[in-house]
Protein backbone atom coordinates (compact mmCIF):
# COMPACT_ATOMS: atom_id res chain seq x y z
CA UNK A 1 0.00 0.00 0.00
CA UNK A 2 2.73 2.41 0.96
CA UNK A 3 4.46 1.62 -2.28
CA UNK A 4 1.36 2.33 -4.34
CA UNK A 5 0.79 5.65 -2.57
CA UNK A 6 4.42 6.56 -3.11
CA UNK A 7 4.10 5.71 -6.79
CA UNK A 8 1.00 7.83 -7.17
CA UNK A 9 2.73 10.77 -5.52
CA UNK A 10 5.73 10.40 -7.78
CA UNK A 11 3.53 10.14 -10.86
CA UNK A 12 1.79 13.40 -10.03
CA UNK A 13 5.18 15.01 -9.45
CA UNK A 14 6.62 13.70 -12.72
CA UNK A 15 3.55 14.69 -14.72
CA UNK A 16 3.34 18.26 -13.43
CA UNK A 17 5.97 19.90 -15.71
CA UNK A 18 4.14 18.33 -18.66
CA UNK A 19 0.81 19.66 -17.35
CA UNK A 20 2.13 23.23 -17.31
CA UNK A 21 3.88 23.08 -20.67
CA UNK A 22 1.12 21.22 -22.50
CA UNK A 23 -1.74 23.33 -21.10
CA UNK A 24 0.10 26.49 -22.12
CA UNK A 25 0.71 25.15 -25.61
CA UNK A 26 -2.93 24.10 -25.80
CA UNK A 27 -4.07 27.71 -25.31
CA UNK A 28 -1.49 28.91 -27.86
CA UNK A 29 -2.69 26.36 -30.40
CA UNK A 30 -6.35 27.11 -29.69
CA UNK A 31 -5.64 30.62 -31.00
CA UNK A 32 -4.27 29.06 -34.20
CA UNK A 33 -0.55 29.41 -33.50
CA UNK A 34 1.78 26.41 -33.47
CA UNK A 35 4.81 27.16 -31.27
CA UNK A 36 7.35 24.35 -31.49
CA UNK A 37 9.67 26.23 -29.14
CA UNK A 38 8.28 24.68 -25.94
CA UNK A 39 11.51 22.82 -25.19
CA UNK A 40 13.50 26.04 -25.47
CA UNK A 41 11.06 28.03 -23.35
CA UNK A 42 11.06 25.33 -20.65
CA UNK A 43 14.86 25.24 -20.55
CA UNK A 44 15.18 29.00 -20.29
CA UNK A 45 12.43 29.04 -17.66
CA UNK A 46 14.29 26.35 -15.72
CA UNK A 47 17.67 28.06 -15.81
CA UNK A 48 16.39 31.57 -15.04
CA UNK A 49 14.24 30.28 -12.19
CA UNK A 50 17.22 28.43 -10.78
CA UNK A 51 19.59 31.40 -11.04
CA UNK A 52 17.10 33.77 -9.42
CA UNK A 53 16.27 31.27 -6.67
CA UNK A 54 19.97 30.68 -6.02
CA UNK A 55 20.88 34.38 -5.83
CA UNK A 56 17.83 35.68 -3.95
CA UNK A 57 17.35 32.53 -1.83
CA UNK A 58 13.66 32.85 -2.64
CA UNK A 59 12.29 29.94 -4.70
CA UNK A 60 9.03 31.78 -5.33
CA UNK A 61 10.86 34.69 -6.91
CA UNK A 62 12.53 31.99 -8.98
CA UNK A 63 9.18 30.67 -10.19
CA UNK A 64 8.06 34.18 -11.12
CA UNK A 65 11.33 34.79 -12.98
CA UNK A 66 11.00 31.47 -14.81
CA UNK A 67 7.51 32.43 -15.86
CA UNK A 68 8.67 35.81 -17.17
CA UNK A 69 11.62 34.23 -18.97
CA UNK A 70 9.34 31.75 -20.73
CA UNK A 71 7.04 34.60 -21.73
CA UNK A 72 9.99 36.68 -22.94
CA UNK A 73 11.12 33.89 -25.23
CA UNK A 74 7.55 33.47 -26.44
CA UNK A 75 7.50 37.20 -27.21
CA UNK A 76 10.44 36.72 -29.57
CA UNK A 77 8.48 33.98 -31.32
CA UNK A 78 5.37 36.15 -31.47
CA UNK A 79 7.23 39.09 -33.02
CA UNK A 80 8.86 36.87 -35.64
CA UNK A 81 5.75 34.92 -36.62
CA UNK A 82 2.83 37.26 -35.92
CA UNK A 83 4.32 40.63 -36.81
CA UNK A 84 7.02 39.58 -39.26
CA UNK A 85 4.98 36.74 -40.76
CA UNK A 86 7.71 34.09 -40.56
CA UNK A 87 6.95 30.39 -40.96
CA UNK A 88 5.75 29.08 -37.58
CA UNK A 89 7.37 25.66 -37.89
CA UNK A 90 10.80 27.08 -38.69
CA UNK A 91 10.52 29.81 -36.05
CA UNK A 92 9.48 27.35 -33.36
CA UNK A 93 12.45 25.13 -34.20
CA UNK A 94 14.67 28.20 -34.07
CA UNK A 95 13.27 29.13 -30.67
CA UNK A 96 14.01 25.65 -29.31
CA UNK A 97 17.58 25.68 -30.64
CA UNK A 98 18.04 29.21 -29.30
CA UNK A 99 16.68 28.23 -25.89
CA UNK A 100 19.01 25.23 -25.67
CA UNK A 101 22.02 27.45 -26.47
CA UNK A 102 20.95 30.36 -24.28
CA UNK A 103 20.20 28.20 -21.22
CA UNK A 104 23.50 26.34 -21.51
CA UNK A 105 25.31 29.66 -21.81
CA UNK A 106 23.77 31.51 -18.86
CA UNK A 107 23.57 28.45 -16.63
CA UNK A 108 27.19 27.38 -16.90
CA UNK A 109 28.30 28.81 -13.56
CA UNK A 110 25.31 27.37 -11.73
CA UNK A 111 25.78 23.73 -12.68
CA UNK A 112 26.89 22.52 -9.24
CA UNK A 113 25.11 25.13 -7.12
CA UNK A 114 22.78 23.79 -4.42
CA UNK A 115 19.54 25.56 -3.55
CA UNK A 116 16.77 25.30 -1.02
CA UNK A 117 13.89 23.55 -2.84
CA UNK A 118 10.25 24.54 -2.52
CA UNK A 119 8.82 22.52 0.37
CA UNK A 120 5.58 20.55 0.18
CA UNK A 121 2.64 22.33 1.72
CA UNK A 122 2.32 21.72 5.43
CA UNK A 123 -1.27 22.09 6.53
CA UNK A 124 -1.45 21.68 10.30
CA UNK A 125 -3.13 18.49 11.46
CA UNK A 126 -3.51 16.89 8.05
CA UNK A 127 -0.53 14.56 7.63
CA UNK A 128 -1.91 12.31 10.40
CA UNK A 129 -4.48 10.86 8.03
CA UNK A 130 -2.69 7.79 6.67
CA UNK A 131 -3.19 7.29 2.92
CA UNK A 132 -5.56 10.09 2.04
CA UNK A 133 -3.48 12.63 3.94
CA UNK A 134 -0.33 11.87 1.98
CA UNK A 135 -2.18 11.76 -1.32
CA UNK A 136 -4.07 14.97 -0.79
CA UNK A 137 -1.61 17.11 1.11
CA UNK A 138 1.86 15.80 0.39
CA UNK A 139 2.60 17.75 -2.78
CA UNK A 140 4.54 20.82 -3.75
CA UNK A 141 2.36 23.94 -3.98
CA UNK A 142 3.18 24.04 -7.68
CA UNK A 143 1.34 20.74 -8.15
CA UNK A 144 -1.84 22.25 -6.72
CA UNK A 145 -1.33 25.36 -8.81
CA UNK A 146 -1.16 23.23 -11.94
CA UNK A 147 -4.59 21.81 -11.10
CA UNK A 148 -5.94 25.30 -10.53
CA UNK A 149 -4.46 26.27 -13.89
CA UNK A 150 -6.21 23.32 -15.52
CA UNK A 151 -9.58 24.29 -14.04
CA UNK A 152 -9.06 27.93 -15.00
CA UNK A 153 -8.20 27.08 -18.61
CA UNK A 154 -11.11 24.68 -18.92
CA UNK A 155 -13.46 27.36 -17.61
CA UNK A 156 -11.91 30.18 -19.64
CA UNK A 157 -11.90 28.38 -22.99
CA UNK A 158 -15.36 26.84 -22.81
CA UNK A 159 -17.35 28.99 -20.38
CA UNK A 160 -16.33 32.59 -21.08
CA UNK A 161 -16.88 34.94 -23.95
CA UNK A 162 -13.17 35.75 -24.16
CA UNK A 163 -12.39 32.04 -24.44
CA UNK A 164 -14.88 31.74 -27.26
CA UNK A 165 -13.13 34.61 -29.05
CA UNK A 166 -9.75 32.88 -28.67
CA UNK A 167 -11.21 29.71 -30.18
CA UNK A 168 -12.87 31.68 -32.96
CA UNK A 169 -9.53 33.28 -33.81
CA UNK A 170 -8.02 29.81 -34.02
CA UNK A 171 -10.80 28.48 -36.21
CA UNK A 172 -11.18 31.38 -38.63
CA UNK A 173 -9.01 34.44 -38.13
CA UNK A 174 -10.53 36.07 -41.23
CA UNK A 175 -14.05 35.94 -39.78
CA UNK A 176 -12.88 37.09 -36.35
CA UNK A 177 -11.06 39.98 -38.01
CA UNK A 178 -14.11 40.88 -40.09
CA UNK A 179 -16.28 41.07 -36.95
CA UNK A 180 -13.68 43.41 -35.51
CA UNK A 181 -11.65 41.31 -33.12
CA UNK A 182 -7.93 42.17 -32.91
CA UNK A 183 -6.67 38.79 -34.18
CA UNK A 184 -2.97 39.58 -33.92
CA UNK A 185 -3.26 40.99 -30.40
CA UNK A 186 -5.24 37.97 -29.20
CA UNK A 187 -2.67 35.63 -30.70
CA UNK A 188 0.13 37.58 -29.03
CA UNK A 189 -1.54 37.09 -25.66
CA UNK A 190 -2.12 33.37 -26.27
CA UNK A 191 1.52 32.86 -27.29
CA UNK A 192 2.76 34.79 -24.23
CA UNK A 193 0.51 32.74 -21.98
CA UNK A 194 1.90 29.53 -23.48
CA UNK A 195 5.45 30.76 -22.91
CA UNK A 196 4.73 31.70 -19.30
CA UNK A 197 3.28 28.24 -18.63
CA UNK A 198 6.27 26.53 -20.25
CA UNK A 199 8.53 28.73 -18.11
CA UNK A 200 6.74 27.61 -14.93
CA UNK A 201 7.01 23.99 -16.10
CA UNK A 202 10.75 24.49 -16.46
CA UNK A 203 10.94 26.23 -13.07
CA UNK A 204 9.17 23.26 -11.51
CA UNK A 205 11.86 20.97 -12.92
CA UNK A 206 14.82 22.98 -11.63
CA UNK A 207 13.30 24.05 -8.29
CA UNK A 208 11.06 21.17 -7.20
CA UNK A 209 11.40 17.99 -9.20
CA UNK A 210 15.17 17.91 -9.36
CA UNK A 211 16.46 21.01 -7.51
CA UNK A 212 19.56 21.72 -9.60
CA UNK A 213 20.55 23.02 -13.00
CA UNK A 214 21.82 20.55 -15.59
CA UNK A 215 22.31 21.44 -19.25
CA UNK A 216 19.37 20.15 -21.28
CA UNK A 217 17.60 18.96 -18.12
CA UNK A 218 14.16 19.00 -19.75
CA UNK A 219 15.27 15.94 -21.77
CA UNK A 220 12.67 16.39 -24.47
CA UNK A 221 9.72 17.15 -22.17
CA UNK A 222 8.89 20.20 -24.28
CA UNK A 223 8.50 18.00 -27.34
CA UNK A 224 6.49 15.44 -25.41
CA UNK A 225 4.21 18.29 -24.29
CA UNK A 226 3.63 19.16 -27.96
CA UNK A 227 2.73 15.55 -28.67
CA UNK A 228 0.40 15.55 -25.65
CA UNK A 229 -1.67 18.36 -27.14
CA UNK A 230 -2.27 16.24 -30.25
CA UNK A 231 -2.85 13.18 -28.09
CA UNK A 232 -5.42 15.15 -26.12
CA UNK A 233 -7.16 16.28 -29.33
CA UNK A 234 -6.97 19.82 -27.91
CA UNK A 235 -9.04 19.02 -24.79
CA UNK A 236 -7.64 20.20 -21.44
CA UNK A 237 -8.80 17.24 -19.35
CA UNK A 238 -7.15 14.83 -21.76
CA UNK A 239 -3.95 16.89 -21.52
CA UNK A 240 -4.07 16.36 -17.77
CA UNK A 241 -4.64 12.61 -18.10
CA UNK A 242 -1.92 12.29 -20.74
CA UNK A 243 0.58 14.25 -18.67
CA UNK A 244 0.21 11.92 -15.70
CA UNK A 245 0.33 8.89 -17.98
CA UNK A 246 3.66 10.07 -19.38
CA UNK A 247 4.82 11.10 -15.92
CA UNK A 248 4.22 7.50 -14.87
CA UNK A 249 6.19 6.20 -17.85
CA UNK A 250 9.22 8.31 -16.93
CA UNK A 251 9.18 6.67 -13.51
CA UNK A 252 9.58 3.15 -14.92
CA UNK A 253 13.34 3.53 -14.59
CA UNK A 254 13.28 4.07 -10.83
CA UNK A 255 10.56 1.52 -10.30
CA UNK A 256 12.43 -1.23 -12.11
CA UNK A 257 15.51 -0.52 -10.03
CA UNK A 258 13.44 -0.57 -6.83
CA UNK A 259 11.91 -3.90 -7.80
CA UNK A 260 15.30 -5.31 -8.70
CA UNK A 261 14.51 -5.95 -12.37
CA UNK A 262 17.66 -6.68 -14.39
CA UNK A 263 17.37 -4.36 -17.37
CA UNK A 264 19.72 -1.75 -18.81
CA UNK A 265 18.85 1.78 -17.77
CA UNK A 266 18.93 2.84 -21.42
CA UNK A 267 15.94 0.66 -22.33
CA UNK A 268 13.87 2.28 -19.61
CA UNK A 269 15.05 5.77 -20.55
CA UNK A 270 13.79 5.11 -24.07
CA UNK A 271 10.28 4.37 -22.84
CA UNK A 272 8.84 7.92 -22.75
CA UNK A 273 10.08 8.65 -26.28
CA UNK A 274 8.89 5.34 -27.72
CA UNK A 275 5.58 5.72 -25.90
CA UNK A 276 5.17 9.21 -27.39
CA UNK A 277 5.73 7.86 -30.89
CA UNK A 278 3.31 4.95 -30.43
CA UNK A 279 0.59 7.09 -28.87
CA UNK A 280 0.99 9.74 -31.54
CA UNK A 281 0.59 7.14 -34.27
CA UNK A 282 -2.46 5.56 -32.64
CA UNK A 283 -4.23 8.89 -32.07
CA UNK A 284 -3.35 10.40 -35.44
CA UNK A 285 -4.49 7.30 -37.33
CA UNK A 286 -8.00 8.63 -37.27
CA UNK A 287 -7.35 11.63 -39.51
CA UNK A 288 -10.98 12.76 -39.37
CA UNK A 289 -10.96 13.17 -35.57
CA UNK A 290 -7.75 15.18 -35.72
CA UNK A 291 -9.12 17.41 -38.46
CA UNK A 292 -12.33 17.90 -36.51
CA UNK A 293 -10.62 18.83 -33.25
CA UNK A 294 -7.55 20.72 -34.40
CA UNK A 295 -8.00 24.49 -34.65
CA UNK A 296 -8.69 24.99 -38.34
CA UNK A 297 -6.11 27.74 -38.87
CA UNK A 298 -3.36 26.04 -36.80
CA UNK A 299 0.06 27.06 -38.09
CA UNK A 300 -1.26 29.31 -40.86
CA UNK A 301 -0.05 32.90 -40.89
CA UNK A 302 -2.55 35.74 -40.76
CA UNK A 303 -2.00 39.25 -42.02
CA UNK A 304 -4.81 41.76 -41.45
CA UNK A 305 -4.44 43.08 -45.01
CA UNK A 306 -4.99 39.60 -46.45
Amino acid sequence: MDHAVQLLLLTLAAGTPLVYAALGELVTEKSGVLNLGVEGMMLVGAVVAFIVAATTKSPWLGVAAGMLAGAALALVFAVVTLTLQANQVASGLALSLFGVGLSAFVGLEYVSVVIEPIKPLAIPGTPDLPVIGTLLFGHSPLVYLSLVLFAAIQWFLFRTRAGLVVRAVGESPQSAHAIGYPVVRIRYLAVLFGGACAGVGGAYLSLVYNPSWVEGMTAGRGWIALALVVFATWKPWRVLAGAYLFGGVTLAQFQAQALGVEISAQYLSMLPYVATIVVLAVISRDAATIRLNAPASLGKPFHPDG
Binding site: L84, A90, L97, A104
Partner: peptide
Amino acid sequence: SVTGLFQGTLLLFLL
Protein backbone atom coordinates in the same frame (compact mmCIF):
# COMPACT_ATOMS: atom_id res chain seq x y z
CA SER B 1 28.14 27.03 -25.34
CA VAL B 2 28.25 30.52 -26.83
CA THR B 3 28.25 28.55 -30.11
CA GLY B 4 24.73 27.29 -29.47
CA LEU B 5 23.61 30.78 -28.55
CA PHE B 6 25.00 32.21 -31.80
CA GLN B 7 23.46 29.38 -33.84
CA GLY B 8 19.99 30.05 -32.44
CA THR B 9 20.39 33.80 -32.82
CA LEU B 10 21.45 33.40 -36.45
CA LEU B 11 18.31 31.47 -37.36
CA LEU B 12 15.95 33.77 -35.46
CA PHE B 13 17.38 36.87 -37.12
CA LEU B 14 17.25 35.17 -40.50
CA LEU B 15 13.57 34.34 -40.13
